[in-house]
């Protein structure tokens, strides 16, 4: 097509560009600059210090936060992506799976604050749904939202929310696989499980790598569930980078150090994306996508 434009064509991008500059570009630059400044509350004192960055490796709470983030990512890979793949594998065998899929997807649309508050009640020691079920089954009740279970319990809620999301993505990929790909395996008498793991899953590995990307980066971004469910966590057994960041800059008014944590978090998220991009390039290759 012939390209149209003229001298005013760039004006169409101006409103979006302005808003993007105000909300994302300038504040990101500010955050990076703040991290090398000395502060007294909201008063910048001087520029050009690395003290905040020197503090990072010595901060034990930060180390715990990092550790919790990694544990959370480990569990959510299983509980979100793993469960999502299992559910998708089940759903393709159901004659009518629409209702099933809709129900499992439903928590994705709810505000995480609502889901978090509901599960906080379900995790309660005395009156919670889960401990009542454990007692009914003759088991000991658990302190779900305290160490050592804290991070696992939050991951469980994440799984409850997001398994349906990954199921939907994987399901869409699985039903796009042409029937002819599976026929010969069926004729050879391969079991559904063999077909699933040997043929269907490899064909949607692009989507699985995407899930890997969403869960690993998302593991460092999630804030709501931790903030909402762990209001009573005096030992900070469930501190993660996003909540620690908000506590540092917002509650303790430590702008400089909070900004340094932001930069660290940014580097981690972009680093993960780089690694996943490499995996995609060398491992997934140029296969057809489904």
């Amino acid at each position: 097509m012939k390209q149209h434009g003229g001298s005013t064509a760039w004006l169409y991008a101006v409103p979006a560009m302005l808003l993007f500059t105000l909300i994302i570009a300038v504040p990101t630059a500010m955050t990076f600059m703040f991290s090398i400044m000395e502060w007294r509350r909201f008063q910048p004192l001087s520029l050009g210090t690395v003290q905040h960055y020197l503090r990072l490796p010595q901060d034990l709470t930060l180390r715990r936060a990092f550790n919790n983030n990694f544990v959370y990512i480990f569990w959510t890979l299983i509980l979100e992506v793993g469960t999502g793949l299992t559910l998708a594998g089940v759903a393709i065998h159901l004659r009518r799976s629409t209702l099933f899929r809709s129900l499992v997807f439903a928590p994705v649309v709810l505000p995480s604050i609502v889901t978090g508050l509901l599960w906080q009640q379900a995790f309660a020691f005395e009156s919670g749904l889960l401990n009542r079920i454990l007692l009914f089954a003759g088991a000991e009740p658990l302190r779900w939202l305290g160490p050592p279970l804290t991070v696992f319990s939050i991951s469980l809620v994440s799984g409850w929310i997001w398994a349906g999301f990954f199921m939907t993505i994987f399901y869409a990929g699985l039903v796009r696989i042409p029937e002819s790909f599976l026929e010969s395996a069926l004729l050879d008498g391969a079991s559904p499980l063999t077909i699933f793991f040997r043929i269907q899953v490899p064909l949607i590995r692009n989507l699985i790598v995407l899930g890997l990307l969403i869960v690993t980066t998302g593991g460092f971004k999630g804030f709501d569930l931790w903030q909402v469910m762990l209001r009573r966590d005096p030992l900070e057994s469930g501190v993660v980078l996003p909540t620690y960041l908000v506590r540092t800059f917002f509650e303790n008014r430590n702008i400089g150090y909070g900004s340094a944590i932001s930069v660290l978090l940014t580097a981690v998220v972009i680093g993960i994306m780089g690694v996943v991009a490499l995996i995609r390039r060398f491992y997934v290759g140029e296969m057809e996508e489904y």
Partner: peptide
């Protein structure tokens, strides 16, 4: 804009608040 897709909100939250 494509680059903006990969930045987590935490990259600009502090600056946004101060701004």
């Amino acid at each position: 804009f494509f680059l903006g897709l990969i930045l987590p909100v935490q990259s600009y939250l502090v600056g946004l608040f101060v701004l």
